[in-house]
Amino acid sequence: MTDGPDAGSNLLPGLAAVGLFLVMVLAFAGASFPAPQGFGGDANVTASIGYAMFDIGNLGDVGAEGFLAAFLIVAIVLDVAIDGAVFLAKREEGGSVVTALTDGGRDLLDRSREGPNAPRSERGRDAPRREGGDE
């Protein structure tokens, strides 16, 4: 597989990330902020987050906006995400549906042994297996 110890991945593009870091540091160094306000010594931050998340009045010690709608939307998004993940992991083969969950990952395991350069035909599992694992 890739990214082994000697993957020799190209470090040159990384310079762009370093450059971005330098630019940001330069910008932040020149910036000045007022002193942080803080939450006050005995404020109950966790309870405030809980109230904010469910839009329950102004019971919390620390101010916040209401997040009930965002909470519900994120709940739906998570649900969709899990469905999507299952959908993507499924594959149809010979008319029968083989899901990622039911084959226990054997399929994946089998083919991972054939190495990355195997052509993407359905040569598949009948081909002689190559020993030795990854490159």
Binding site: G40, A81, L88
Partner: peptide, 30 residues
């Protein structure tokens, strides 16, 4: 959040984590 004495940022960080989980689920699928 600390800077302005307001927990909106912290609440949002929680949402970010939830979305990151969703992203990983999709990402793994991809």
């Amino acid at each position: 959040s600390l800077q302005w004495g307001n927990v909106t940022g912290q609440t949002f960080a929680l949402f970010t984590m939830a979305l990151a989980a969703a992203e990983v689920a999709i990402g793994i699928g991809i």
